Amino acid sequence: MKGGFHTTPNVLAVETLQFLAEHEHAGEVMAIFAPGYDSLASVLRRAFDQAAKGKGAERHAQGAPFEAQPMQTISDLVGIGFVLGQAMKKAQEAQRLPHDAAVRELLGAINYIAGAVIFMEKNHHG
C-alpha cells in the first residue's frame, strides 16, 4: 500500500465495494482511479480524510456538512477572498514547517481551495 492506496485496480475495487457496503451514503461515493494518477488520488484522498475525519472535522465541522461549515458561512459574509486567503496562508506556512507538518498544511490548503470552488459554484448565476 502506498499513500493509503493499493495500486492494483482489483484490490481497489474490492475495497471500494466493502466501503460502499459499510456506509450509509454509499450511492454518493465515487472511487478515484485512473491509470497513472495514483499519486494524485492519494493526495486528494488524504485531503478529504483530513476534512471529513481529521483536524477539519474536529475543529470546524461541529456536525455540519462541508458546505455549511464556517469557511462557507464566512465567505457568504465577506466573499471568496476569505477561503483563498486561508489557502495562501497555509501554503506560506508550509514552507517553514518540517515535512509532515508541511504536508498537513498543504492538504488543508487543498480543502480551502475546494471550499472556494464550492462557494463559486453556489454563487454562479449565469
Rank of each mutant, 00 (worst) to 15 (best):
K89H: 06
A114P: 00
V83N: 00
A57N: 06
A21S: 08
Q62A: 14
R96N: 14
A68G: 00
Q18Y: 02
A21T: 08
R104H: 13
Q86R: 12
H6Y: 09
H99C: 13
I113K: 03
I74L: 12
A41S: 13
G63F: 04
A101D: 15
G85Q: 02
R104N: 14
E58G: 05
E93C: 08
A109T: 10
F119T: 02
L44A: 10
M120N: 03
V43N: 01
I80C: 08
Q62N: 13
G126K: 12
G81F: 04
L40C: 00
L84I: 12
H99E: 15
P98M: 08
T16Q: 06
N123W: 05
V83M: 11
P65R: 02
L44C: 04
I32M: 07
D38E: 12
G85I: 03
T16H: 11
A102P: 09
T73H: 00
R45Q: 03
R104D: 15
D100P: 04
S42R: 00
F66A: 04
G36K: 02
Q50V: 01
A31R: 03
P65M: 00
G81E: 05
L20R: 07
A94D: 01
S75D: 07
R59E: 08
G115Q: 09
V43M: 06
G3S: 09
A13K: 10
A13E: 15
Q69H: 04
L40F: 05
Y37L: 13
P98H: 08
L20Q: 06
V11Y: 03
H60T: 06
I80M: 10
Y37F: 15
P98Q: 11
